[in-house]
Amino acid sequence: MIEIPRQKPKFRFAPSPNGPLHLGHALSAILNHDMAAKADGDFLLRIEDIDQTRCTPDFEAGIYADLSWLGLRWQEPVRRQSEHFPAYQQALQTLIARDLVYPAFLTRGEVKARVAAFEADGKPWPRDPDGTPLYPPDDRGRGDAERQRLLASGMKHAWRLDMERAMAAAGGPLHWQESGDGETGRIPADPSVWGDVVLSRSDAPSSYHLSVVVDDAVQGITHVVRGLDLFHATSIHRLLQTLLGLPEPLYHHHRLLLGSDGKKLSKSMGDTGIAEWRRQGLSAAELRRRIGL
């Protein structure tokens, strides 16, 4: 009998260097690190720096300093998304070749105006689980000749997933295996609630959704451990994994840390960073206790 070696578990922490890490990041990083150790697996660090306007080397250096202070160690080399744009473009070209995406020409302002005009009559525009209005159907319905004319003109555009075509191409119901702090078990995926999600923009060669599934596959990630705020986004990721023939990881969406206002901690809201707690004299062990570990 041929003995097939078991794949070594791989976990990852994937922050964006667009601000200082806060306690919510500490929770996610420590959980990934400790779960990897318990499973006799590997802990990987990924720098998600696709947004070149907001991500900076100083914030990236801060990530390394914060995680080292927490006592975490990771495998080298660190994967930096900005070094792998061709891989994301290759995945996008695969979807273009299958006619599962389309060029979207409406600007944010045009979409906002369209939604406002529609809702002025008292009717709600459909929104995704994050509350963002779904993209209008204008570009999805354009003929090939008009699309080619607009592309040839150099008009700025994004590439969006044609959700209806993509769901049909997936060939049946989608699910993921969940072991987190909310629903558990085999969870049905419903990507359609997100509408025609963007996969690439003129100012960013890949979206979070596209790059994260490519990265997880390339790095051999077996366990995705992240916050509950990304629970519903897993539906999109399972769809893209299926369309691109990528493996399905196990998922664990953990509790979120909330601020005094009852909302999740956020870089944009200036919530106290790990480095600031360190400067105030908090030890790494005390920080673990503060976040309930």
Rank of each mutant, 00 (worst) to 15 (best):
H232A: 11
T234E: 02
A97T: 15
K8H: 14
I30T: 13
W176C: 04
A116R: 15
D51Y: 10
H33F: 15
R160C: 10
G195K: 02
T107P: 00
H22W: 14
D58H: 13
A91G: 05
M155H: 06
E286F: 02
G273P: 00
L67P: 05
G182I: 05
I30V: 15
L67H: 09
E276D: 09
Q90V: 12
W176R: 03
A36T: 11
A117L: 12
G182E: 06
F11W: 07
T222H: 03
D139L: 04
G220Y: 13
L95V: 07
A91E: 04
G154T: 07
P9E: 11
W125Q: 02
R255K: 09
G19P: 12
S28G: 02
V198G: 02
L70Q: 04
W125M: 07
D130N: 11
H254G: 06
D130I: 02
I291E: 03
W74E: 00
G131F: 08
Q89A: 00
F43I: 14
P124L: 06
S266I: 04
L287M: 13
P173E: 02
F85D: 03
T234Q: 02
F13W: 11
V198T: 13
H25Y: 09
A39V: 04
E76Y: 12
T272M: 09
H175S: 07
L243N: 09
G270Q: 07
D216A: 08
Q52K: 13
P20Y: 10
W159Q: 07
D40W: 05
P137R: 14
D40K: 12
R226C: 05
P129D: 15
L100C: 01
F85R: 05
H33L: 06
S82N: 13
M1W: 12
R290C: 01
N32A: 00
Q219R: 07
R140H: 13
T53R: 14
E60M: 01
I187Y: 01
L265K: 01
